[in-house]
Design a protein around this nucleic acid. Structure first.
Lengths: 236, 236, 236, 236
DNA sequence: CTTTAACCGAGACGGTACGTCCGGTCTTCAG
DNA sequence: CTGAAGACCGGACGTACCGTCTCGGTTAAAG
């Protein structure tokens, strides 16, 4: 039977990933235990259990290949070779290449929280730094490619959104909300717009050409936010 | 001799595309005349000249296929079929698929000028509309994949930057400069930052999820620019 | 009798290849050659074994195509189509077209023995009939083209010689040697010369024009042999 | 329009070559200068005059390529390159590749007569020597391949037969007929069979393997002919 | 302690696209 | 009007990758 169906027990499509947002980077074989712990106590599995090291080695191999050859240069054969694993094993864990790369990004995308320091300006700067760091590190770039390459694969897309985009957004949202609560930011700030503006700037600078983003510009954007010169929600 | 070498006069690598910016959509066999007009007065060509219709038909076929099947669905065989042309002819014009798609995007990316109306606010709104229109039309996503496919082909990348990204940027640059000249915008506006901010926002909103970009938000961003609350150049 | 496969039950392996015994140990899956026949007793095979039916179907398809379109009309794509097999599979078994056709001829060239009847004249007539039959059947002409196509591939050439030419020659050699043993033929008959003379006559008659070879002529040649009027070895 | 139609002025298909055998060099395109030099002073031709060396250079280039790469390795592009000629020029002289190679063989196949010396045995030996020399020289071998490669092109086949095979055969026929007339050979010798037997032996020895043909064997075959131990015609 | 189901490496398989090459035709421009 | 240069169509070549499917063999839980 296919392991990667739409049914709930799939590694790839398993839902309820909210808890992850607070706990940092995801763990291997994400979230398989907790959601089923209560509802599926029996369902005993027989036979030899899958090698947990295999999955790790595959992801590591995929990552190195991604760095070496780019997204389109990643070959399942080569991933399997580098991982010392058979192709069959790769396809046991992921239904197709985009899913593998997607998982790779999900796991490698640390969603670091911005601690509440009481200093809104400092928190905004930290947030901006996280954005730059993430998108510069390589995974952010690959993420963009992945989205472009999987425009007809809503499953992978949703997974990426739920596992990577949304958690990262929530980190930013929380920082801005704290700023509002402290009275440092206007109450009607359009949080999504601000975050997309900042993320978009960094992503756009990276795509195509290696144009530098100066510290100066970042500071200005933070300052504009602190002075309330940022998009607001409509009054409706 | 190969047509797609690093040496000049090639359709694909020909430089000096400045003239295009003001003249709207590029023409076929771009820019072959002007760069060589002075430096290569003789250079007689022998043999049957390449069929200019073939090139056009190939690009048209590629465009329709791109719309039908997406970048990864574009096949040279199918392109040749739809164009009524042999594969060899396709490869005579472009060295490989990314180069073809790149040229397609270059030629199809109309760089519409924003006319000087004397009204800076209106011009900024027009500019923002062009950004949205261009990135929404579909080439934006293809462009991303193209970048992935040509990560080891700096020639194609440079061509895209020179032919598409730079001209589009210059349109925006001109609008902002007119605003500065009129005294509607501060003299030290960081033009590149503003344009990247706006382009980035739109591109980011489009990638992954079809999140709406409200008119409201656009108006606010224009208003922020008009009131000078946008990135400035450092004083250096 | 089945000298080839350890595994399978190919329909086309039915020929009696006794003659091969003199030319060294032949394996089926040639092109992998057999120097290890004695030195590699275990040689564990891993992975999915190649489908023996695929090979058979490919050869059958190639044969029908060869009959339909001639050697130059044989296309790997079409062979694969007719065999219901992918091109890759064809190239897994044979490195290129001449090798495939070569194997086809090798397998289809049944080397039928001439039974020992005690009647030398009858055996010579039977031998001559086999020569005519073989060269008329079509493989003779293909073989010529094959030699042309593989002029730079000594491996394929040697294979043809060892697997087809030599075994056929040995059948004739045996008949003549029996005739000598019975005292029906001179002891110093130049066996190779006689066989080449007979084969050459038939081959030459076939090449270019369909000139008939009359029964009359064959009988005469047999008679000349029986009366000793045939090439002899030098006395050295 | 096609230049190589069935009409009589075609280079390739011009018929009635029988008389040529006795009258010396062929009239087709060859030797164009001398016959016309005196007899056609008017007939003004316009435009660029045809290059008389072109045909020769093409044939020379084809010959060298044939030696280098074998029949299937001969490429019209490469022939044109080596000849310093355009492909079009090649196709102006010959309708397709086999025709070119065919003409090459025709021109290079000198049909040397065996002079009437009154000594039948010596003439037969000379004849055999010519056979060996011709078939060994390389063109004989190519001829065989050509015949095999053009099995579906009766025009080329007929041309080869008329221009090469038949003239050579007639040389041999004449020698044997002189022997009969002198009473050295039986009146009912099957001339075609003898010639095919001799030619076939040599051709067969050459095809595939370079097996030597000893002087000894040749002498024996001549001796067998001289003693009448050769195929005879049926009594009918 | 045996069964048995699932795992695993290796790699064959059908399918599809790639980019190259060749045969033969057609088109342009120079002489 | 010829000849050199070379673009053109059609189609075969041999390679690469995807995702699936055996194979022979292993491992751990079930019985």
């Amino acid at each position: 039977m296919r392991q990667h169906t739409e049914t709930s027990s799939s590694v790839f499509d398993t839902g309820n990933h909210i808890g992850m947002m607070f706990s940092g980077p995801s763990t291997l074989r994400n979230f398989m235990i907790s959601p089923n712990a209560a509802s599926a106590p029996i369902a005993r599995r027989r036979g030899r259990p899958p090698d947990p090291h295999a999955r790790t080695r595959i992801l590591t191999a995929a990552e190195s290949l991604l760095n070496d050859a780019g997204y389109l240069g990643v070959t399942i054969d080569e991933v399997a070779n580098r991982a010392g694993v058979s192709k069959k094993t790769v396809y046991r864990f992921w239904p197709h290449k985009p899913a593998l790369i997607s998982d790779l990004i999900v796991e490698r995308s640390a969603v670091l929280p911005v601690p509440d320091t009481g200093d809104t300006r400092a928190e905004l700067a930290t947030l901006f730094g996280l954005i730059v760091e993430y998108l510069t590190a390589g995974h952010g770039r690959t993420l963009t490619l992945l989205v472009a390459a999987t425009h007809d694969d809503p499953g992978t897309l949703n997974r990426l959104r739920d596992q990577v985009v949304t958690p990262r957004r929530d980190i930013g949202r929380r920082v801005l909300q704290r700023g509002i609560a402290r009275g440092d930011l206007p109450a009607d700030v359009d949080i999504d717009a601000v975050l997309d503006l900042w993320n978009g700037l960094v992503a756009y600078r990276l795509s195509g050409r290696p144009a530098a983003l100066h510290r100066h510009t970042i500071d200005q954007l933070v300052e504009l936010a602190m002075t309330g010169h940022i998009p607001r929600l409509p009054q409706s």
